[in-house]
Write a protein that binds this DNA or RNA. Sequence first.
DNA 1: GCAATAGTGTCTTTCAGACACTATATC
DNA 2: GATATAGTGTCTGAAAGACACTATTGC
Lengths: 237, 237
Amino acid sequence: MNELERFPRPSVTIDLILMSLSGRSMTVLLQLRSSAPFEGLWALPGGFVHIDESLDDAAARILVDNARLKSTWVEQLYSFGAPERDPRGRVITVAYFALVPAQTLEQAVRSASDLTVAKLKVPWPGEAGGSVFALGQEGEPLSLAFDHAEILGMAVKRLRGKLAYTKIAFALLPPLFTLRELQNVHEAILDQSLNKPAFRRRLLDRGWMAPTGERESGTVFRPAELYRVVTDRDAQH
Amino acid sequence: MNELERFPRPSVTIDLILMSLSGRSMTVLLQLRSSAPFEGLWALPGGFVHIDESLDDAAARILVDNARLKSTWVEQLYSFGAPERDPRGRVITVAYFALVPAQTLEQAVRSASDLTVAKLKVPWPGEAGGSVFALGQEGEPLSLAFDHAEILGMAVKRLRGKLAYTKIAFALLPPLFTLRELQNVHEAILDQSLNKPAFRRRLLDRGWMAPTGERESGTVFRPAELYRVVTDRDAQH
DNA sequence: GCAATAGTGTCTTTCAGACACTATATC
DNA sequence: GATATAGTGTCTGAAAGACACTATTGC
């Protein structure tokens, strides 16, 4: 351990960007800080990386412990290490990005008094309004602790970028879903309306989903067919 | 500093993937390890993050100190933190990815005896051969220290992914370049030949470069026009 | 039958690939 | 003029957007 002790060591934390959809808006899980620094501000849920666990394991542990939920899509986003980002001392944080169905996220909020689901205002680059904001109950922009506003902005950018060429959108849907629900997810993330026939052609041609033969119920109009995600194992045939 | 001291702290390092092109092959800068662990194996150049510098600053410092060169394109790639990745103890590394013109890289190698430029064998996903390999002088696959083979594979993937929608390729070219040289860069990175008229149309329509009116010299055939990159500032008109 | 949405057929537009052709430099 | 590559015109095919049309459900 000799060479490693020549340099003072920073603390390393994980921050989680837990995103979902509420109606036509993207949302994020925030936690109220109950102690300094940034007491009373909203922050991304997070925690310290233990000395004997991998970064991925730490993210999974904090997801369960701190936010009491599971996610079907977790990936590392980016590491943030400006020397002054935490007034307590040198803290480098590895941000992880996860998607959770809306229902699951709301359940977590109900079981913990310090959690909230904030809608996001997400202007496109070049558009007036600048960066990403989390909005409070009355639609007012929230001040986030640390550099969490920057982290949030990067997460949105990553989500939009991966939407077209990965199965990321399915992480926001239940196991059985209609094509309209899938299109709603894409439209909410991209914040623009999409052409229905083109959307269906494009997504179905990918082979990412399969019709089940079942139909949704409870509609007052023609019920849509329910689809399921095709796993990579299914697709090997 | 109280809360931060409740958890043992890991060491944090930077590893650099310094990539370039040699002829039609992608290359990477490797450093011979002169001490344990992995003595005698090749590794990515790297170093410890100092307690008062940002991750980006650390990457820039190590780029100059350790590899004696500058780059016009540096970006954070990913953080690796498996508990057993360094036998000396817990070390989390933040990998940075940089592109350097071939000439600059070769100059760095000549000025340091422990550096080499290794060609890469880069199979496409699904193709036989599996993962990315660095090749020695006789074309034999090199064993890399730590988890550096994994890091290298991710860097190649990132480079290929960003090629289509960013100006990343220009970082491998001199300030004035011909369209054929630009196409050669793309073909080497993607490891496939591209259609000439389509390539020209696509890249010129982006507005990323401008003709200079000058022409290359020293050819035995018709000299091609020289182009320069259009900076974002230029493009605002 | 009415209302409302599901789902499709097809025309148009856009863009990439293919290929052949013209242009221009050195020797 | 021979040669080798620069650079372009144009045909073709694939895929996205637009739009209208048919289909099917509850009431």
